[in-house]
Design a protein around this nucleic acid. Sequence first.
DNA 1: TATTCGTGGAA
DNA 2: TTTCCAAGAAT
Length: 305
Amino acid sequence: MISAAAQGLVLSWWDRHGRDLPWRDTRDPWAVLIAEIMAQQTQVNRVVPRWHEFLERWPTPAVLAAASLADVLRAWQGLGYPRRAANLHRSAQVVVADPGLGGSLPDTLEGLLALPGIGPYTARAVLAFAHEADVGVVDTNTGRILARVGGRRLGARAAQVAADAWVPAGEGWAWNQAMLDVGALLCRPVPRCHDCPLATSCRWALDGWPNPDPAAKSAGVSVRQAPYRGSMREVRGRVLDVLAEGGATTDDVIASSVRALAPSAAHHAEPLDVRVVEALTQLEADGLVAVSASIVTLAGDPAVA
DNA sequence: TATTCGTGGAA
DNA sequence: TTTCCAAGAAT
């Protein structure tokens, strides 16, 4: 738990130092969902302009559901993890097709979790930020705070229990926004405790920051990741870039991708064209790419050579 | 529980 | 330059 005094310190710190993010001016569940999906493993400053563009083009689930996946993937270019875009597109189609929902997103935890690409964090973020529900939102930022203030490493379940318990009654929206900002601005991987409203409540800080940092690998978030350069992720990314320009023969796509990958090809024994073919195969299996009669396109694009 | 899934800003 | 890691989810 956390004291009412500490809660007050957090909220008053946030009044003065909280970030000004555009999705904080809306309670539209669709707009909130787009922001949350885009922000998954992606810095919010990079999301802001893309969020405006996306919502202007597809302001409701219905209009997104009617768009081609290829157009959605193009709108996603540069954000990374394109399957987020595919899942969002699919979620929109589910919502539109379900007579019980009438084109609106579910407003229950279970309903949101049932949609592809929406997990424990995103579902609760929609509840807290669109519906102003008193639920705790656990992400990489709040997960660090919970572990450090508690002075011990937390599993995903314990982190969720603590996050829920910390929410001041009736303040779910502001509290979670504040926690996200404390985590992003102060309780960072390398902490900046000097101005932190929780400094006098934080077990880890009060004990003199002993090793190991309780936030490390805590709350089931912030997974350590493999190198990107030379990875299959990089290969798939370059292949999608090439396909975004328009359909081409498989040979053309392979040649263009190999060219785009040339700078990072040196460290790998397997020939680049073999890896590109493997990437195409994976992308097709994931439904992001369509291959027909030796023509490759983004899924949903007309296959004109 | 451990891996895999893109991209780019920041230190 | 390299390394880290960001409003996570799915498997």
